[in-house]
Design a binder for these strands. Structure first.
Lengths: 168, 168
DNA sequence: AGGATACTGGACTAAGATAGTCCCATATAG
DNA sequence: CTATATGGGACTATCTTAGTCCAGTATCCT
């Protein structure tokens, strides 16, 4: 379905949570240095703690989130949300995005000569990446009313985020 | 990976094969009515016959390919390749594309109120679909030199299509 | 120093999706 | 009637994903 995985979806929620917290959603004080523990994020996003821990570890290894170890430690965005794009987020969780397996490192097209599609998928890739480069984490963290919520299909206009089972 | 499945990739190869055959690649005679049997397509694309049969059945149920049963039967494109978009092809094999599970029919967002991402993914969806609507099957069937083969990653610039195992 | 807190790294398992194959029924040409 | 082909669907092995858990390490505070 050309669909991102649930973990990527959850990871985006986590990033949004961090962005909102840094913006001072809780006490009105803007503090880009504000650290959130994994527990904070889990309760704030209603995701299961182990899952949140796993995803925060991945994020901390990326350039998007920084971490502080030890008591009173936690996680915070490493950069301004306006400079973090959806393309970067997908890269972190799903690797370099490409619509087909070729154009990745281990590409060995055994039908290369017989493959009549040429490089058209690359053009598609560029279009997709272009769309993803346009959206920033700041956009995602905006309150819904800032987006007109254009409904493409006449169905739901919200993300569906299920809490992971086994908690709560 | 935001990656399409192998079957979708194979299905696209099949469509390209049908487009090229109708264009008269074999004997120079343009014949939009030219029927290809599943065996023809399998040998032409070097994909395994059972896989090709399966995919052609899916395609025949869509509006993209028509079929003729019985001896001397086969498959042909139902429409001009220039009117078949990549978005349609993905729809056939992977269902209506949406980057997250919401905005599909069975959407029940249990965190709807707590979900702070608003409708931004919808914007991403629109961008992606826009890119996919720009590419037609005719583009895909063009010889490679018609596309500049812009290499996004400094790696391979061709699709990787592995023949299905179990067929010599 | 020592305990409490909290991130780090990786292993592990269950569930689901995917890829691929095969069988039987049906339709058509000769 | 037979050979050729599509139609529909079941079936299975394999891979990926989702989710959990454990042992290790760093830091704060008393």
């Amino acid at each position: 379905m050309l669909r991102i995985s649930k973990l990527t979806d959850y990871g985006t929620m986590i990033l949004v949570h961090l962005a909102v917290q840094a913006r001072g959603a809780k006490d009105g004080v803007v503090d880009p240095e504000h650290l959130c523990s994994a527990s904070d994020v889990a309760s704030g996003t209603r995701l299961a703690l182990p899952t949140v821990q796993k995803l925060l570890k991945v994020l901390a290894r990326s350039e998007l989130v920084r971490s502080v170890r030890g008591a009173e430690g936690g996680y915070a965005l490493a950069r301004n949300p306006a400079t973090i794009t959806a393309a970067e987020i997908l890269d972190v969780f799903e690797g370099p995005l490409s619509i087909t397996e070729c154009s990745t490192a281990d590409s060995r097209c055994e039908l290369e000569d017989g493959c009549p599609t040429g490089g058209a998928w690359q053009k598609i890739n560029r279009g997709i990446r272009g769309a993803l480069d346009e959206i920033t984490l700041a956009d995602l963290a905006h309150p819904p009313r800032e987006f007109p919520l254009v409904d493409l299909s006449g169905r739901s206009s919200r993300l569906r985020h299920r809490p992971t089972p086994g908690q709560g």
